[in-house]
Simulated assay, not measured.
Amino acid sequence: MNLVNKIIVITGGTSGIGRQIVEQLHAQNTIIVVARNSKRLEQLKKRYKNVICFSADLSDPDCYKPLSERIQAEYARVDVLINNAAVQNEPFFTDPNFEYEQISREINVNFTAVCSLSFLLLPALKASDSESIILNINSGLSFVAKKSASVYCASKAAINLFSQSLSYQLEHTNIKVLQAFIPLVDTPMTHGRGGEKMSAEYAAQSILNGLKKQVPQHDIGKIKILRLLNALTPRLAKRLLKGS
C-alpha cells in the first residue's frame, strides 16, 4: 500500500510507538488520532495540520459506538485502522496491591476496543477507494507468556487469533487484516522494565514497512528469533520469557 493521501485512524497515537507512527505519516496523510490524554491531543493538533484528534477512554466500552459514529460522520471512508493502544499492568494476582478493577479495563483497551472498532468502522473501511487495512499491533507475549502481566499476555493472544479469524471473514472484501509483532520497545508503558529495548522510532518505521508490503504476520526484531525458538525448543522459549 502506498501511504499517501490516506485517511488513517490510530488508537494510542499520543505517545510511544503510536506517536512515532503519527510523526512518520502526517505529512502526506490525514491522521485521526484516538487517545485519552486531552492535553497531548491538543499538542498534536497544534503541531500538525493533518492530524485530527478524538478524545476517548478505550477502557470504557460505552465510548466505542459514539466514537465510531463521530469519525464516520466527518469522514466517508477510512483507508487504514491501526489498533495500537495498549496497557500492561505488572502486579501478580497474588500481590496485595493488585486492583481487581484493572482486569476489565486492561481487557477493554487491549482487546475489546480492537474488536469493536474493527466492526464499527467496517462501513468506512469498505468505502475506501481501493484496498483498506486493519493493522493490529501485537507482541511476542501473544505466543510465549511471561510471569507478570497475565491479562496483557492473554489479551495479546486473543488478538492473534481474532486477527486470523477476521482475515478469513474479510478475504473476499477490499479489507486486509495484518498484525505486527513487536519486541520490548522503549515507551512510557515499558519504563523501568527490561534491559535492551528497541527505539519507538525504529519500531514505528518497521511497522509501517510491513504495512506497505501488507505482511500478514510481521515479526519485528527479536520476535523472529523468539518464534523460531518457540517452534524448535518451546521449553527454552518459555524459560527465557518467564521472568522477562
Rank of each mutant, 00 (worst) to 15 (best):
I7M: 03
I7P: 01
I7V: 11
I10T: 04
T11E: 01
S15F: 05
G16A: 07
V22I: 11
N29T: 05
V33A: 06
R36K: 15
N37G: 03
K49H: 14
V51F: 13
C53G: 05
S55K: 15
D60W: 10
P66K: 10
R77H: 13
V78G: 06
A85N: 04
E90Q: 15
T94I: 04
I103K: 09
V109P: 07
N110V: 00
F111D: 06
T112S: 00
S116A: 12
P123H: 07
A124Y: 13
A124D: 03
L125Q: 05
A127Q: 01
A127R: 04
S130H: 13
I134D: 02
I137S: 01
N138Y: 14
S139L: 04
L141E: 06
L141N: 12
K146G: 06
S150T: 06
S150R: 14
C153H: 02
A154Y: 08
A157Y: 05
L161D: 08
F162Q: 01
S163Y: 01
L166Y: 14
Y168R: 13
Q179I: 11
A180Y: 07
A180M: 13
P183R: 15
L184G: 02
D186H: 09
T187F: 05
P188N: 01
H191W: 12
R193H: 14
G194R: 07
G194L: 01
E196C: 14
M198A: 07
S199P: 07
L208C: 09
N209G: 14
G210K: 12
G210C: 11
Q214W: 11
V215C: 08
V215H: 08
V215D: 05
P216I: 09
L226S: 07
A231L: 13
K238T: 01
R239E: 08
G243D: 15
